[in-house]
Amino acid sequence: MGMVRRYWRLLGIQLKASGLLALQYRADFFTEGITSLFWTFTALAPLFVVYGERSVVEGWGFAEALLVVGWFTLLQGILEGAINPSLTGVVDHIRKGTLDFVLLKPADAQFLVSTQRFLPWRAFNVLTGLGLFVYAFAKLGHGPSVTGVLASVLLLGTSTLLLYSLWILTVSAAFFVVRVDNLTYLFTSIFDFARWPSSVFQGVARGALTIFFTYVIPLALMTTFPAQAMLGRLPLPALAGAVVGSAAFAWVARRVWLRSIGHYTSASS
């Protein structure tokens, strides 16, 4: 119990430090807000183009596809606000050799590096995502079911865990190749596919892409599943699969991380 309390306290202090920093850069709130809105509209543009021609694509109506974009935007807020800053910091640590200080601390290194930096203003994307949900359901003319909401909240947890684990895997590569800037770009570009319902890729390479995005890089689990859950369309086995799958992913990421630390050679001084 003492250990859990200690890590909560650590998290609190790390959040406080990030909060203090964020307050130093207050103007960011407005720039983030404007950028977020701008990117959301850019993200919606292709949707308008596609749905201008037809009303349903691979079983997804406009308002339903809007939910997927909503989830995409929300997760992007979490990714850029809570996951990305810390883990990009790890790459810096490795390059400069200051990861030494992290490894010298009597606390879990993965925890320390994962909580070292938050950008609260990036949370604006989360608000934009929620706004899109409201708009989409208004268009649909009905609200989500209670079970739908519960399931999607659960999936928010699994999606965040998946995103985080994917990032840990990417960052682990930094121990071996040092320069992972390209890798992180690749990651963000692949994540971009998550703005579309996964079934739209059905026609590509005989569905290989859908399978790829479900099992290899589980983008479908992150945005399509929660949207389906909100609509009350997600089969129970898929929900269970998301929970088990994300847990397995996190486990693998943890193993890889521990392995990679062992491989750390520390920058020479």
Binding site: L10, I13, A17, L20, T98
Partner: peptide, 19 residues
């Protein structure tokens, strides 16, 4: 190499290390 948080006062690093 330094462990102090660059943009924050050293007191914040001390507090973090204490925890």
């Amino acid at each position: 190499k330094q462990q102090l948080l660059w943009d924050l006062p050293p007191a914040e690093t001390f507090e973090l290390n204490r925890a």
